[in-house]
Simulated scan of single mutants.
Amino acid sequence: MATNARRPSARELGNKAQQAGDRAERAGSDIQDSRAFRILVTVGLACYGVIHLLLGWLAIQLALGRGGEASTGGAMKDLASKPLGEVLMVIIAIGLFTLAVWQLIEALFGYRRLKTTTKARRKISSGAKVIMYSALGFSAAALAAGSDSGDSNESARSTTAQLMSAPFGQILVALVGIAIIAVGISQVVKGVRRKFVERDLESGAPEWGKKLGTVGWIAKGLSIALVGALFAWAAISHDPDKAGGVDGALKTLLEQPFGVFLLIAMGLGFAAFGIYCFVWSRHVNHEEI
């Protein structure tokens, strides 16, 4: 005689889902609280600082007419060409992938004490950082393996050309440009309003490090906004060749009146952010991890 199994009620299913979510959240918290993970986050932020110090140096070299690719990819290529460069690339790749995991955990389980709208905004931001850190990590891993990660300007132009070939492609490219400009502006605001002090740093971080962070976030934001402006200009002119990465943005800046001085100032801003990353690595706000 067949028996009918009782189906779980909606409340029971909801409770099981809640319990599963709580277990996943605790597992994420355990990872974040582990000493090994925190050490890797510190290493990752220090590696990120090295990349920006090199980016600042390349930007200044570009301003002085000595060529080179002034981008994060160019900075890693320059470092990879040095003695023990491949070993350094492995360390940087591990550090960057750790930062990606950190932000992935934040996107999935973090910001529990924040209001719903703020929490959603922070989670989206963490998700974007997962993509950024992962992309840089893959570039570092490729360089460690002896492969060339490619030119940032060519990559941007290729992406723009592909988007423009799609239906409503010109509008898509313009939207990409606007989104990138918005990210850049948000980082400028983060620097000007010093939002990073509360979000990123624990109490006790030195004031000089906070000042470098202000300069660094503004410089990063301006460079990103310039990249977005190039995408927008490519859409307006319907010319994919107008697009470019950070290197293209800095070269465009160099072509402006007083471009040499503007580019040197930008390079110093990147260097300031690089030093700030070392301060950040030593004073990470563990409540945000």
Rank of each mutant, 00 (worst) to 15 (best):
R66E: 13
G146P: 07
G216D: 00
R157P: 04
S237K: 13
A271Q: 00
L40E: 08
Q187K: 09
V284F: 10
K129Y: 14
V101L: 15
K16L: 15
A128Y: 08
I131C: 09
G245C: 06
A161K: 09
A161N: 07
S203E: 15
I105Q: 08
I131A: 13
I94D: 02
L104Q: 09
T116W: 12
F270H: 10
A243I: 04
R113A: 11
T252E: 14
G184H: 01
E12L: 12
I218E: 00
K123C: 04
W217S: 01
I218Y: 00
L64I: 01
W102T: 06
I91Y: 05
A235V: 05
H286R: 14
G146L: 10
L222T: 00
Q32I: 13
P257W: 04
S134P: 05
A10G: 09
V227G: 02
F278K: 03
S152T: 08
A219W: 00
W208V: 12
G221S: 10
A2Q: 11
R23L: 14
N4K: 14
S281N: 05
G127T: 08
H238G: 08
K77L: 05
G28T: 07
F168K: 14
A70S: 14
A225P: 03
Q170Y: 07
G44P: 05
F261Y: 12
A272N: 01
R157S: 05
A59I: 00
K77W: 03
R199F: 13
S152W: 02
T159M: 12
V43T: 09
T72K: 08
A5M: 14
R23V: 10
L104G: 13
G269C: 06
K210S: 10
G44W: 02
I51Y: 01
R7E: 13
A17P: 01
L143G: 04
P8C: 09
V50D: 07
G191K: 04
I289W: 12
L263R: 01
V176H: 06
D151Y: 05
E69W: 01
Q256W: 07
T3I: 11
L53C: 11
G127I: 09
K195H: 15
V43Y: 08
I171C: 05
G244L: 06
E288K: 11
V130I: 15
L263E: 02
G228D: 06
A128M: 15
G248D: 03
D33M: 12
G85H: 07
S134M: 14
F109A: 10
E25Q: 14
I124A: 12
F168A: 15
R199I: 13
A265G: 05
D241Y: 09
T72W: 00
T117K: 12
R38F: 04
M266G: 01
G248N: 07
R122S: 11
A36G: 11
F37I: 09
I91C: 09
I51G: 00
G21F: 05
